[in-house]
Each structure stands twice: as C-alpha cells, then as structure tokens.
Amino acid sequence: MGTLSYTATVSIDGYAADADGDFQWSAPSDEAFQFHVDRMAAVSTEVLGRNTYLLMRYWESAPEDGSWGAAEHEFSRRWCGIERVVVSSTLTRDDVASERVRLVPELGLAELEKIVAEARGEVEIFGPTTASAAIRAGMVQDFRFFVVPKAVGGGLRALPDAVDLDVRLVEHHIFGNGTAYLHYRQR
C-alpha cells in the first residue's frame, strides 16, 4: 500500500501559477533540480491533470540536440519508470506516448484511494486543481512545497480555499538561490 503526497512549487504568497497562468518563475535551479531527481526515487505513481501531463511529456524522450546533462537523463529515466495516471476528459490514447500512462476522464476519491492502495510506494498528486478534492478530504499525508522567493500577487493558489490542515514540519532545506523546500506531514 502506498501513501499520498502533494508536491507544488509556490510563490511566497502561495500561488503555483500567476494571474496569467505563467509559472516560468518557478523553474528550479540546478541544485533544486537534483533534489527533485533524488526525491523521485520514492515515487511509484504520479497523478496529474491534462495540462501538467502535457508539460511533463517533455521528459518522455531526450532532445536530439544533446542538451540534457546527467541529471536530466536520470530524471527522465525515473519519470518514464513510474506509473502515471492522467485525469483528462479531452485527451485520447493517441495523445499519450507511453504505455505506463493511464487516462481517466475524472478522478473520484474512491478511485484515488484504490490507486494509493495498489501502489508500491509513494503516490504523488501533482497540480493544485487535480489535488484539491484529495486535500479537502484529508487524504494527503505529505505536503512538499518548494517556496520560491517571489510574490506574484494572484493566480492559481497552491492550496484550495477553505481547507483546514494540521501539519507538522518533518524536513526542510534551503537552496542557494533562496528557494525553501518544506515537507509537512498530516498530524
């Protein structure tokens, strides 16, 4: 049986994307990227929405120009090795390049519980919209935030409104660029 975690890169004012939907400000430094690579070793399943999947599809094959370094190749290897559940009512099987990707038109809490129960490790739910119902239902055990030292003033909140969480800090790290990694666990 797995555990459910939620990971997000957020501005200091709590947004995963700004008011225009942009999140380029959240690109990790080399140091933070290596941290993500290492962290992926514990993840067996990723649950993500359509937009996040389309963004992450980049990692399913190396660019032909040879621009990836060792960390990018290792992240890609780990990403391609995990099960991915994509929540989308508009994507079709033809839109998915990997056999390790399962499309579901919607994700109810019962289906998510089944995914976690069948997982051999950590199930990471990625993206505030996809994660909101699970967060509200108290299903998420671990919260991992990469807090970027930038305020964006509005946009897509990393946590849903009107959620009540009681968490404790279990791990933290400050990167050289000022980004703070904060790992919280439900009490």
Rank of each mutant, 00 (worst) to 15 (best):
I174H: 08
F145V: 05
G155V: 10
F175T: 01
N177C: 11
E111F: 05
L109I: 09
P105G: 08
R120V: 08
A119E: 06
L159I: 06
R120G: 15
P105F: 12
V148C: 00
D161Y: 13
A162N: 15
V148T: 03
V167G: 00
V152S: 07
L107F: 07
E106Y: 09
N177L: 03
V147W: 08
S132R: 14
L107S: 05
V167Y: 04
E111P: 04
V123E: 07
G153Q: 07
L112A: 04
A110L: 11
G108A: 09
A110P: 00
G176N: 12
L112T: 03
G138N: 07
N177W: 04
G154W: 08
E171D: 15
P105H: 10
G127S: 08
F143K: 00
K114A: 15
A137E: 06
S132F: 06
P149R: 07
V147I: 15
V104K: 05
A158W: 06
T130D: 02
I125G: 02
G127N: 07
F175H: 04
L169W: 04
E111D: 15
P160H: 11
D161A: 15
V163H: 11
L159D: 01
G121H: 06
K114G: 11
A162H: 14
R102G: 00
V101N: 03
E113Q: 14
P149F: 10
T130N: 05
